[in-house]
Nucleic acid binder design. Structure first.
Lengths: 349, 349
DNA sequence: GATTTTAGCACAATCGTTTGACTTCAGGGG
DNA sequence: CCCCTGAAGTCAAACGATTGTGCTAAAATC
């Protein structure tokens, strides 16, 4: 800008205004405006976003924190968030928290130091003081996938409870009553919700929840694998397993395969998270599909709303519906179902 | 910083120096240093990276451009790049070019406007003027996955040629000579290399390349699906297919399944890109595995080297070895192989 | 002809940090 | 008594853009 100003013998302010299209507003003569624009082209000038950010107090950048970007679910969320953000003129500053609360915390700090205009975060734990304190300082922040009830932090999530219920109902309706719940790290809201849905649906059918059927401790292949192994080695193994995310689902399949069991012949499987490759698994998995696009779009919308100050309602949040995609990894157990009816007089749809 | 300075009745410069640990160097009395540090804690001050970036001319941020972050390959690269960058104190400004050269071009502009200290880019096309011009302006930029020969732009790539050769050799050694090459967008260096490897290996075995066996036009499920369908419907269909990336591989599997064919019974498949779920496919795929970690680490290393000005060699680039992981999607065709030998007197290992 | 308007532009502060160049004061050596 | 040294700090200019205010002519008005 200096260069241009000097070259044309005008002031920098003039250049700035001309380049930001405020020529009319500030009565800049057509001749100088054209000269400035032309000169800018020649030097192929492009504004310094950092300087502008400093002056304007906003950078047109959104921070995005996810626990593990190589997880297909998150990479899709990232993609959708990036797309939605770009549509609104924002760039994405990305941080991978590696499922570590400390890293997450540091990432949030760095993002705020970087003057991002807002942060979208898929939290990896239960502690949320860094998030809440951001919110209390009027810093735009929105959770995605996970959330913190009563924290007042807005969120965009899939309907975890309904998703879990749908999956379990599907199993129940096919006669399964011995269902293992293979979860990830239990102490996050997502886990609470999915487990809650699982239990609630069982309760609706009058079936008691057995604690030993709730297994697993991490959102990883390994954890899913070990948990499934353990539960399948019980004296009375489950007839169906519900895997709480895609990585765990793979672990579960690994364990099943290793035991020489077949899906759905010996054991049925339903998983949370839909993936393109489930179709081509040995047995196409029946899954609860989440809507990445709505999640990504939703979180960006909320964030941008909050940034622009028009926050109509206090804490608007979005719950995106999920849907069950049946693919044949669940076996119909008529006999068992009927048997069970007589015993438990469970509620029938 | 102002606040702290005012509160203690000292100048901002003092605060700045104290906080950046230059107390000794600038002979700041222990008492004031402590006071400043204490005050900073109380206000939980954290520096403004934007202001610092403006002043210092560097932001400790790396730009990263990938064609499609929801592709498992790229999401892993992103993860590794992010990790390696964080280890060196850099953040990642992410852009998804959506396999669109114009978007890619704009992304590079935005990243440079954002004063990132360097850019890692997985190019999605053949045009590279924006990349070369960055390099010519001494702007640190490194390609990953793709590259531009003779452009002088450093790169970190997998050994595409060797990978393709390994895959093809494996097929040849199992008696396949009618191999379809299911590629993506042909006009990128990656495609040239993989196709080149394919042809070279066939040539080494004295087998002529048939143009109608080279199919596909995009790096997508759909493209892989359609290409596989078409080639399988020929009068003399191939006995094996080589899918050039993971999404295409899925499309190929989809087509095979739809035709009611079995892998490897009716047709063998090898794919580029290793994925966690290939183990649990109907038939575990034999794949060419890339080393994400080395790719990510390598590109960050090169970039940081270039940023810090110590560029030992002119254009250091890295070619990361790949390895073939056999899993049983290739059938041994003794008969066919022998038959073929007699006809073509092909070179045998 | 005096005054007001207005077109066209320049000045300078500002955003938050960093940093080279000064300043000030006390004490020591000659 | 003067000069020098060193300790402890201050000043002010940058970085690159934006923006409120002020200035100067020429044109319009009465």
């Amino acid at each position: 800008m200096r260069l241009i100003a000097a070259e044309l013998g005008v002031s920098v302010s003039l250049v700035s205004r001309a380049l930001s299209g405020k020529a009319k507003e500030f009565r800049i003569s057509q001749s100088t405006e054209q000269a400035i624009l032309k000169s800018a082209k020649r030097h192929n000038y492009s504004p310094n976003r950092v300087a502008r950010g400093l002056r304007l107090g906003k950078t047109n950048t959104l921070g995005l924190v996810v626990p593990n970007i190589s997880n297909f679910f998150y990479s899709n969320v990232v993609r959708q968030v990036e797309r939605a953000a770009r549509d609104k003129g924002f760039s994405i500053l990305l941080a991978d928290s590696q499922d570590d609360e400390d890293v997450e915390r540091k990432s949030v700090t760095i993002l705020r130091e970087s003057m991002v205009d807002g942060i979208a975060i898929a939290p990896c734990g239960l502690r949320c003081d860094h998030i809440v304190s951001a919110k209390e300082e009027k810093f735009p922040i929105v959770c995605v996938d996970g959330y913190f009830p009563d924290s007042g932090v807005p969120y965009v999530i899939s309907d975890h409870i309904a998703g879990a219920r749908m999956a379990v109902r599907h199993l129940l309706e096919n006669g399964h009553s011995e269902i293992a719940f293979v979860q990830g790290y239990p102490d996050v809201q997502v886990s609470y919700d999915r487990l809650g849905g699982f239990k609630a649906e069982l309760a609706d059918y009058g079936i008691a929840v057995k604690d030993h059927m709730i297994v697993g401790e991490q959102f990883s292949y390994q954890s899913g694998y070990e948990a499934a192994r353990k539960v399948l080695e019980r004296q009375h193994p489950p007839t169906a397993l519900f895997a709480v995310n895609n990585e765990i689902a793979l672990g579960v399949l690994g364990a099943i395969q290793e035991k020489g069991l077949s899906v759905p012949g010996d054991v049925s499987v339903v998983a949370f998270d839909d993936l393109p490759w489930v179709l081509h698994l040995r047995i196409p998995l029946t899954t609860v599909a989440q809507n990445y696009e709505e999640l990504g779009q939703g979180v960006v919308d909320l964030l941008v709303q909050s940034i622009q100050g028009d926050t109509p309602q206090q804490s608007v949040s979005v719950v995106v519906p999920v849907r069950l995609v049946e693919r044949g990894s669940v076996r119909k157990l008529r006999s068992l179902r009927n048997a069970h009816h007589e015993i438990s007089s469970s509620k029938i749809l």
